[in-house]
Design a protein around this nucleic acid. Structure first.
Length: 424
DNA sequence: TCTGGGGTCCTAGGACCC
DNA sequence: TCTGGGGTCCTAGGACCC
């Protein structure tokens, strides 16, 4: 019997949001489609149809028959939205995730623009994760469209380096949801994540320890999960473009340019070393709500509008906390200015809360400490230092129950005064 | 014709305590 | 009477990820 080798898989759904949309709008298959921006819903499409084509009554069962010319196009888009997902045909035009929609409209004006529908994506997300855990129970949730799986102890998980199990998972997800994914299998999460990108879409890539020099070292450093634009620029400045070049540097040299921790991590990553376990359970650290305004707002000039937004954000965070059963002690705000620089202020309370009014009071205190002379484009409210409600109750009994958004929104008028009150 | 929203983790300085 | 060292908490900012 051979020793078990650690085999970790990374599953990455292909163009997830867009693929889910194509399930209900199959007529868009093969066309450039981007998801993002505004808040239109499919009901608007149906309403327009019922208005202009009253010869029949259009319902949600007819989504797949909505004529192409009824779909909004990117051309002429104005607003601050960004692309969340683009279909592969749209990517041919150079548009992709996180790109501003107005820029995308220049590159591909004929692309169809669909609004995001998180409720729908979450359902499919749950569905594909359920399928995974039925086959391989040790799964780490990495967001709506990605998971890590530990294949090591799954029957058959070692066959062909994990390819057999990867194929089974891919096929099961496709058969049961109609969605495709790419899978990378490797000795650890770091390499599995890179491998899942090798053959997108519908790819399976197997990486073994001995493949490092051939498959990993030629890649750009930016392909390492954790090296972002800043670190990449710094590495390039030091003459390091590929992972192989990074691996050629010794630890002492790296330590002179990066901190002790970062250099150790960079060194390990370049040599394909990563011992992080697949974590199946985790508790949230913070919850927040934020919003970007349609135009930059000024604390004085637009105070009524800001007061309403501020109150709404506090109410939403409070609702999120209560719905999920958490309370938190650290209340914070975030502002983003016109130049995209941002600022945070926070305040830790004596005890945890999920109460909308308490959050608003604390966030208001934070606001008093922020400079408000410049216009800003975003306002956010955050609650950190989270605890499960039951645990907080058992350690601190006699807490008043949390009030939700209804009570707070009823006091919107005072809320506006209170925003104004911060300023003078 | 700039750049969403929801997160995590790390660093660093100061307060405060022993 | 001139000044150690460690630990923890709080705050602010920033990099990075999905």
């Amino acid at each position: 019997m051979s020793a078990r080798i650690r085999r970790i898989a990374h599953v990455d759904m292909d163009a997830f949001y867009a693929s889910v949309e194509l399930l209900r709008y199959p007529q868009l298959k093969g066309l450039p489609v981007v998801i993002g921006g505004g808040r239109r819903s499919e009901d608007d499409l149906l309403a327009r149809l019922n208005q202009t084509r009253p010869e029949r009554s259009w319902t949600t069962a007819d989504l797949g028959r909505i004529p192409l010319d009824f779909f909004p196009r990117l051309a002429g888009y104005t607003g601050r939205g960004v692309i969340t997902t683009a279909t592969y045909p749209a990517r041919q035009f150079g548009v992709g995730s996180a790109m501003g929609l107005m820029k995308a409209a220049r590159l591909c004006p004929q692309a169809i623009l669909l609004p995001v529908d998180f409720a729908e994506y979450r359902q499919y997300s749950r569905a594909f994760k359920d399928i995974v855990t039925e086959i391989a129970p040790v799964m780490e949730d990495r967001g709506v469209d990605e998971v890590y799986i530990d294949f090591t102890d799954v029957p058959g998980g070692q066959r062909e380096g994990g390819r057999v199990l990867a194929r089974l998972i891919q096929k099961s997800i496709f058969d049961q949801t109609g969605l495709t994914c790419s899978v990378g299998v490797a000795p650890n999460k770091l390499l599995a994540k890179m491998a899942s990108e090798f053959n997108k879409p519908k790819g399976i890539s197997i990486v073994h320890e001995l493949d490092l020099a051939e498959q990993i070292w030629p890649l750009a450093c930016r392909k390492i999960n954790g090296i972002g634009p800043k670190a990449d620029e710094k590495l390039k400045g030091l003459g390091i473009a590929t992972i192989g070049q990074l691996a050629a540097k010794d630890l002492a040299w790296l330590a002179r340019h990066f901190g002790p921790r970062t250099s150790a991590w960079l060194h390990d990553a370049a040599h394909g070393r990563d011992e992080r376990p697949v974590v199946t359970q985790s508790e949230p650290v913070s919850m927040s709500r934020e919003t970007t305004f349609e135009r930059d707002l000024h604390a004085l000039h637009d105070r009524a509008e800001l007061g309403v937004i501020f109150t709404r954000l506090c109410a939403q965070v409070a609702d999120d906390l209560q719905r999920k059963g958490y309370v938190g002690r650290t209340i914070g705000i975030k502002l983003r200015f016109s130049d995209f620089k941002s600022l945070t202020r926070d305040l830790t309370l004596p005890g945890p809360t999920a109460d909308a009014q308490a959050i608003r009071n604390a966030a208001g205190q934070c606001l008093k400490r922020a400079p408000l002379a410049r216009r800003f484009r975003l306002l956010g409210v955050r609650v950190g230092g989270l605890q499960r409600l039951e645990e907080a109750q058992s350690s601190m009994p006699n807490q008043p129950p949390s009030r939700g958004s209804t009570e707070l929104l009823a006091t919107t008028a005072e809320a506006e005064d209170s925003w104004t009150g911060q300023l003078f």
